[in-house]
Design a protein around this nucleic acid. Sequence first.
RNA 1: GCCGAUGUGGCUCAAUGGUAGAGCAAGCGCUUCGUAAGCGCUAGGUUGGAGGUUCGAUUCCUCUCAUCGGCUCCA
Length: 568
Amino acid sequence: MKLDTLRHSASHVMAQAVKSMYKNVKLGIGPSIENGFYYDFDLDQPIKEEDLPRIEKKMREIIKKNYKFEKETISKDEAKRLFKDLNETYKLELIDELEDGEISIYKDGDFIDLCKGPHLNSTAEIGHFKLLNVAGAYWRGSEKNPQLTRIYATAFETKKELDDYLNRLEEAKKRDHRKGFALGYFSMHQEVGPGLVVYHPKGALLRSLIVDYLKNEHLRRGYQMVLGPHIMKSDIWKTSGHADFYKENMYFFDIEGQEYVVKPMNCPAHILVYASKIRSYNDLPIRFFELGTVYRHEKSGVLHGLLRVRGFTQDDAHIFCMRNQLQEEIVGVIKFVKAVMANFGFTDYEYEVSTRPEKYIGLEHDWDNAEKILIQSLEAEGEKFDINEKDGAFYGPKIDIKIKDALGRPWQCATIQCDFALPERFDLSYIDNQGKKQRPVMLHRVIVGSIERFMGVLLEHYDFDLPLWLAPVQIRMLPVTSRAQEFALEVSEKLNTTYRVEVDLNNETLGNKIRKAQQEKIPYMVILGDREIKNNTLSIRSLKKGDLGNINLDEFVKVLAEDLLNRR
RNA sequence: GCCGAUGUGGCUCAAUGGUAGAGCAAGCGCUUCGUAAGCGCUAGGUUGGAGGUUCGAUUCCUCUCAUCGGCUCCA
């Protein structure tokens, strides 16, 4: 039995239950999805989360009655009459778009739905299900359409599979990176504004570790650092096209009658550096890198912790090259992404190629060409990918790379975008070996994407238990009694030239200090008491492995050095 | 932006149309302790903000801000 079939049948039963419990319900669609299913309803009154158990109860009654799922095929006209009688206006809209000929409907008990199937034999075969949450969703995914009430749910054949899935959801909730607000990483404030992050010591340290690493990796791969101002006159954004195509996301303001923009992207400054002198084909490719902080006016409803914010910093670079260098550059970036991500502990990727959208600038021919090169680059790297039709940026097609975390959830981080349009708009050129002016091609690319988002993903991936090189506090000294405090400070002095060390001088029991260090996910605890003072050794406790026994300082330093190399 | 929900001390949560209570955290004191919570005391809140209803609002209503679950959008 296919899970999809089971879930889709469960969605019919859910619709059946809702229709029997509420008046004037109109049905949207009710497909099975990756981890469950949903059904959309147009209702007179809202369904609330607390109503879900009642709907579940009704569903169980329906399942118990063991209705057969019966398929019937009728003509398009008959279907129209049938769903008109049922007052299912959304279904009528769907029927209108179906080809003429036979249309299939499914019945179970008194419930009829437009549906191409397949279904289980009867409702009793629906295994174990759970309604999860209620949400608003636009009819057919367009914000111009009315908003329906969507109930998300899931179903499995066995109770164990259902419980396992619900446990995974719990686990994901426990790992929520927003715990970092309480753990001293960062904060957001009503009075500062939504989507704007304030970094606290741990967060600022983690951020700077990530940023330092990225800087070094770029420099040794032939990127040059550049830096643009955070505000620029709107003129340059008119040239770039952003003032037209990206307007609703930009912050405009006025200075002495001049219109300015807080930069939402870093490309214009990089382009100005490129254009600042005559470039030879010998100079290409030129790779400009900036840890560029940008501000984008994201709609209030889309903000989400660190994963979607209004002010963020990108590890952004623009590569200017000749057309015949494009594929090599793209392959280089793909390799770069994989190297960086592996170093942070991510080894599972998903690739998507997004093609020309409705709103675009540039020539159709260039778009087609660029799409071809992106696909060839992925093939050259032996990577599988999906095509995301019409989802490119307005200036060019792109490859999006998603990393999968410890719980198997995909996160969009890296993106590689081809651009034939901006070089045209800014009249960029290089001199070829014939002494003639040529137009370079531009690549926009980020590796981790937004430092903010990446930190959120990292924290959830590791459940705050960061690898040693990224741990804000690497070692905490725990003196057992006040007699050991001096020794603890002494050892700390020796270690803190290389490592981030704290000494817990609180008047607490050892158990209490260990508990706190464990909760704060500090990788190494060094326990010091009379025994250690006497033998001049350290009692090491590892966050993950527990008591490692007594060793001397040199041996501990070796353990640390070893662990630092372990970047997974 | 849209649909729905939520908003109580630093954190997690309780309570009520008659001006709020606990645990953790914090401060002080006692305790000097061996691998995940020692004991006691103290302090801390104009219940997100504004307005309204009421003799009286934190509780009811309206607006607003923020957050959460989604949709659309996206790094």
